[in-house]
Design a protein around this nucleic acid. Structure first.
Length: 224
DNA sequence: GCGACAG
DNA sequence: ATCTTGTCGC
């Protein structure tokens, strides 16, 4: 059985150990048939959470499979160590799927992380699946505002390297922060996010997973 | 030393 | 993350 990470020192050690395993070559699925979205919702008290994963048919963007589990945060909220909080529950949820998705779209960052190992990298390495991160707010890096049109983007740079892209998914709407997680190129990650945002700022994967875990938290149950 | 800091 | 109120745009 794998011992859970309990201290900051342990978490940092795990990141250092797993970071070299990230596949930066990609390029990832060209036209994936299925894409999964993952998200977590917290109870007001903060002692309970629900983790959900939804699998969408990329052609119709319909949910074809899903799983949700209720549990406890596995770690305190520490920027840079965020994955240790949600990963156990997310892995539980992934285990409840009947379909193996071709790409994971994570709610958070991948390489756009202080040590280049955000949630999307961690989830990708642990599952072996291609993964990307889509964050709503920045964690690290500097960038210029992208053009106002959907599809416009600008490089997200940190420490002299490009760690992601600031991508406008809808005309005139606040951009999102896209970064590579595992086995996907940055260009492909950008294309996948645009394919998942025909109508709203956030990917349909994130939206469906968000709704599922919120509902599960309200119901206080776990099902798939 | 002081702020910033994914969800 | 979550809560709440308010405002703008379609």
């Amino acid at each position: 059985m794998s011992a859970s990470v309990r201290t900051v020192a342990e978490a940092l050690a795990v990141q250092e150990q797993l970071r070299p395993l990230v596949d930066l070559v990609g390029p990832g699925p060209d036209a994936p048939a299925t894409v999964a979205g993952l998200d977590v919702a917290y109870a007001e008290e903060g002692d309970r959470l629900a983790a959900a994963v939804t699998v969408l048919d990329t052609r119709t963007l319909a949910v074809v499979d899903s799983a949700v589990v209720v549990g406890r945060p596995a770690f305190g909220y520490v920027p840079g160590l965020f994955a240790f909080r949600e990963l156990p529950a997310l892995l539980d949820a992934l285990g409840g799927l009947r379909t193996l998705p071709e790409l994971l779209v994570c709610d958070g960052h991948g390489l756009a992380h202080p040590r280049r190992f955000g949630l999307a990298c961690h989830l990708g390495v642990v599952t072996g699946l291609p993964a990307i991160g889509v964050g709503k707010t920045p964690l690290v890096g500097d960038w210029a505002s992208p053009g106002r049109e959907r599809g416009a983007w600008s490089p997200l740079s940190d420490g002299g390297e490009v760690v992601g892209r600031v991508l406008r998914t809808r005309d005139g709407v606040k951009p999102v922060f896209v970064s590579v997680g595992h086995r996907v190129s940055l260009a492909n990650a950008t294309a996948q996010v645009l394919a998942l945002t025909p109508r709203f700022r956030l990917p349909e994967t994130t939206r469906t997973a968000d709704r599922l875990c919120r509902d599960a938290l309200a119901a206080g149950t776990s099902r798939s």
